[in-house]
Simulated assay, not measured.
Amino acid sequence: MTERLPLFPLGTVLYPGLVLPLSVFEERYRQLMADLLAGAEPYRFGVVAIRDGQETAPTGVPGGSSALAGLGPDPARSLFEVGCTAEVASVETRADGGYDLLVTGTTRFRMLSIDVSGPYLTAETERLVEDPGPEATVLAQGVERTFRAYQRRLAGAREATIAGVQELPDDPMVLSYLVAAASVLSTGDKQRLLAAETASTRLSAELQLLRRETAVLAKLPSLPAVELGRQSFNPN
């Protein structure tokens, strides 16, 4: 089963169940939104992370003035092939003709082909199955403990929490995506977590990444760690 989706390339990774604010200001993406709003709800598009080139900026992120121009002559080589479908939770039209959106990640997809002929990119996609995998519950317990230690180290204080993460979900799949979104990692690392075939694979990778990052943070002065702890994410 395939689906054609308009694409919104970003310099960040969206995960199922997480929310993301977006500011739409480029003409091509204004057209994308106009086309979506002219159709039936739910309004959906695909968010794909950029390997290189400029991004279309989320709210509060500077730069990103030309997503398509920044992707180079072959967008397929500049974009990761696994993305996440974004469903528009709220939309406001600005006086300048742009849009302020709040979107929720729903399902992962793999791009089969990209069409560059229109005003914005579209792709033929196939939905990826969500599989817990073996020992997901046991791995989730280890990730939760390790993530708490990482939180404390990142915040620079034993009682502090990161970006309002106080209670973690019991569901291993949901936990795997929440931890991926809340951790301060490179786009490449975050993309590998999104593309993991099972929750078990994702959780196992998170254990390694969190241990690595916690060890790195232990060697840093407290000020950078506190500043990193102020980065935000949006759990649904």
Rank of each mutant, 00 (worst) to 15 (best):
S232I: 14
A140N: 06
A155G: 13
Q54L: 05
D131A: 04
Q166P: 00
A57Y: 03
T12H: 01
A49M: 09
V103S: 00
T122S: 13
G118T: 10
V138S: 06
L154C: 02
Q141A: 13
P169E: 11
T59H: 09
V19G: 01
I162E: 05
V88E: 06
G46M: 14
A76C: 00
T59L: 12
G72H: 01
P75L: 01
V47T: 02
N236I: 04
G164V: 10
V19C: 12
G39N: 07
Y43N: 03
G133M: 04
G53N: 03
Q141P: 00
E227L: 15
Y120L: 07
V184T: 04
Y29L: 06
E81R: 12
S204G: 12
G229R: 14
S117Q: 11
A160Q: 13
T104K: 12
N234I: 01
K190C: 03
S65M: 14
L71N: 03
L228M: 15
L101I: 00
M1F: 07
A160F: 13
D115N: 13
F109E: 13
L22D: 00
S23K: 14
V48N: 02
P119G: 08
T122F: 04
R192N: 07
G97R: 05
V226Y: 03
L185V: 11
R110F: 04
E197D: 15
M1T: 10
L121H: 03
D96Q: 10
E144S: 15
E126I: 12
D35G: 10
L102Y: 00
A69G: 15
E227K: 09
R77D: 03
V91I: 15
R30T: 08
R51W: 09
V47I: 14
P235N: 07
R152H: 02
D115C: 06
A69H: 06
A69S: 12
K190R: 12
L128E: 12
C84M: 05
L32E: 06
L210F: 11
S66F: 13
G83H: 06
Q166C: 05
L128A: 02
G46D: 10
R77V: 01
L68S: 00
R4M: 02
Y120N: 04
G229K: 13
A157L: 09
P172T: 10
A195Y: 13
A69I: 09
Y15D: 04
E87R: 14
L18R: 11
L36G: 11
